[in-house]
Design a protein around this nucleic acid. Structure first.
Ligand code: ZN
Ligand code: ZN
Ligand code: ZN
Ligand code: ZN
Lengths: 170, 170
DNA sequence: GTTATTATGTTACTATATAACATTACTTTA
DNA sequence: TAAAGTAATGTTATATAGTAACATAATAAC
């Protein structure tokens, strides 16, 4: 129980395990759904999972290996669209960047906490928030298709550094 | 009491009054703060307030009158940045577009409801949602700088049309 | 009026994303 | 298993969004 409640954003968490789990889950999900996690799509997902920082399409583009530099934007965007459709990644709308989904194995809604200092993004189900939004939408008689709940600020770790030293950039 | 509770998004509301009120409020706010709502900035604000639809920077650009077509992107973005700093407009991050703020005369937090059919955006204070977010951020020990709460879907009006006829574009 | 500050103009560029059509790789089924 | 159909990727070109750096103009402060 203890370990599984450690936030993925703790600075020294076992990110290899984090990434491997996400990739295995992706393999399984795509297999179950009869959709193809092709080498290109998987590589984009792997690159996204190299950290919890949101990554931009053109940064992915530079890092795709089959003759790095020859892959074109549209290829990356197609892979990104596939991964979003399958719920394997999320777009951070306010950054034009992408993160791996931490809860891809079940239907969920998420709030994204983006640290302006370290750029890491924490995805949280925030159920109480989602319920409050549902109530608000009901009052407004609004039929929801898509939701982007994004918060920018300082994560715990960076806020502590900020309190100690005093050299936050942003 | 009755009139003031009519949603600004009702199809036939008195939008002239809506716009004039917003512009007068902007004049007053800028005057009070000792900042300058220059002709360029005011024109951008006027163009934004022509409707409740979110409008894109390059669409504004096309509509700026001093020799329409000669104004450069940077001019519009500078005006937009000023208006955002003064809280007179909001950016809809998930659309790369802008709307006039409906509550610029007091400090507030907002949730944005964007209709995928008619493109109108309704700004709502949604205090219960904001409180739920505050609690979530406290739990996460996250220090907030900026918040984007954006919902896409169908407004009441368009949902009704959808129910009657059946030709929603999206 | 001169100086400082703020706003806008100008040129050039960087960054983000898609359209349209050709080719390749997989899947289906005769 | 060959042919046909479908899905994925490649290719070329373009559309859309946003900024850097420096010049000029307008306003404010002294
Ligand atoms: Zn991790
Ligand atoms: Zn997720
Ligand atoms: Zn109105
Ligand atoms: Zn507002």
């Amino acid at each position: 129980m203890a370990l599984s409640f450690i936030s993925p954003l703790l600075p020294h968490h076992d990110h290899n395990r984090c990434r491997e789990k996400a990739l295995q889950t992706a393999d399984r999900i795509c297999d179950n759904r009869g959709v193809r996690l092709t080498p290109m799509r998987r590589q984009v997902l792997e690159l996204i999972w190299e950290s919890h920082k949101a990554i931009k399409a053109y940064d992915l583009l530079e890092r795709i290996t089959p003759k790095a530099g020859t892959t074109k934007p549209v290829t990356v965007y197609r892979a990104l669209n596939f991964l979003m459709e399958q719920g394997l990644i999320h777009k951070v709308e306010s950054l034009n960047a992408f993160i791996g989904c931490s809860f891809s194995d079940h239907q969920h809604q998420q709030l994204l906490l983006t640290c302006s200092n370290c750029q890491e993004v924490e995805e949280r189900p925030a159920e109480a928030v989602m319920e409050a939004i549902d109530r608000e939408l009901e009052q407004a008689s609004f039929t929801i298709y898509y939701k982007a709940i994004e918060i920018h600020g300082l994560c715990t770790h960076c806020a502590k550094i900020d309190a100690t030293a005093n050299h936050i950039i942003e």
